[in-house]
């Protein structure tokens, strides 16, 4: 059998005012995914995120003003699609996502077991991988976050008839089918959930892989109880409307 050319991989990191942690995340990705190219998507930061990432030697796509996580992620998918990458992955810039775990997600995509792979904090934990065990404390969710997560988990499971445990995870890996879909339509308001629903509706294979996550090293969570309530409300609308959205032209298989 002829040896196929190596798959080109992009890891992109959406960052909004993450100057404190972006260096460490880039170094982490380089250590665990030496063959992958790295793109930082700076979502209109007012700090030195872009400068620090450029100094670290990675390409930076800087949005001229803050557009929200969905728009930043879509920028990454657009870049991956246009630059001809075979697969891509993204992780948060705040240091919660160990690159060693991202590597495991990418393996699933590379070996074509799924089109879109979600890193789940809450799926049954695997044995800690030797040598890949992240240092520091494992991820623990706050109460308001746990409530929101459970609501979404339930509703998304109903809507997609597929079980998801971590609907808001920002650690994902994807192939070109997903890049095409997400670079066209990606809700700027509710990226994580609507994208899952969209991918399932378009007949893509979406898979969850249990991962370990860390406590954030920089920045702070944007969720306050009031925001959580608003967040949940918006999420419900998104899922409800998503059920009745017209299907795209058959996603390329």
């Amino acid at each position: 059998m002829e040896q196929s050319p190596p798959l080109r991989t992009l890891v992109f990191i959406p960052a909004w005012n993450e100057e404190a942690s972006v260096d460490a995340v880039i170094a982490d990705v380089r250590a665990h995914l030496p063959a992958a190219d790295i793109l930082v998507v700076d979502d209109g930061s007012t700090d030195t995120t872009t400068a620090r990432a450029q100094a670290a030697g990675v390409i930076v796509a800087t949005l001229p003003f803050n557009q929200g996580l969905g728009a930043a992620l879509q920028t990454g998918y657009l870049w991956a699609l246009r630059e001809g990458y075979d697969c891509c992955a993204h992780l948060d810039a705040d240091g919660q996502h160990p690159a060693s775990e991202v590597a495991r997600l990418l393996t699933e995509v590379r070996e074509d077991r799924a089109d879109l792979v979600i890193g789940s904090r809450y799926a049954a934990q695997p044995e800690p991988l030797p040598g890949a065990e992240p240092e520091g404390e494992d991820y623990r969710a706050t109460l308001s976050r746990r409530i929101g997560i459970n609501v979404f988990r339930f509703i998304l499971t109903l809507a997609t008839r597929q079980r998801f445990t971590d609907t808001t995870s920002g650690m994902r890996a994807a192939n070109r089918r997903v890049m095409k879909l997400f670079s066209e339509s990606y809700s700027p308001d509710f990226a994580e959930i609507e994208s899952l629903q969209l991918a399932v509706r378009e007949g893509l294979r979406v898979e969850e892989v249990p991962v370990r996550m860390l406590e954030r090293t920089g920045g702070s969570s944007f969720l306050t109880p009031l925001r959580s309530a608003f967040f949940i409300f918006k999420g419900l609308i998104v899922i409800l409307v998503g059920l009745f959205k017209p299907r795209h032209a058959e996603a390329e298989r």
Partner: peptide, 24 residues
């Protein structure tokens, strides 16, 4: 218009990233 502005911002960000890649 919000959707158009977002796409415009993304296109610009991608152009700048291309520029950086070419320069390097």
């Amino acid at each position: 218009q919000a959707a158009q502005i977002t796409r415009l911002a993304q296109e610009r960000a991608i152009e700048r990233a291309r520029e950086q890649a070419a320069r390097e």
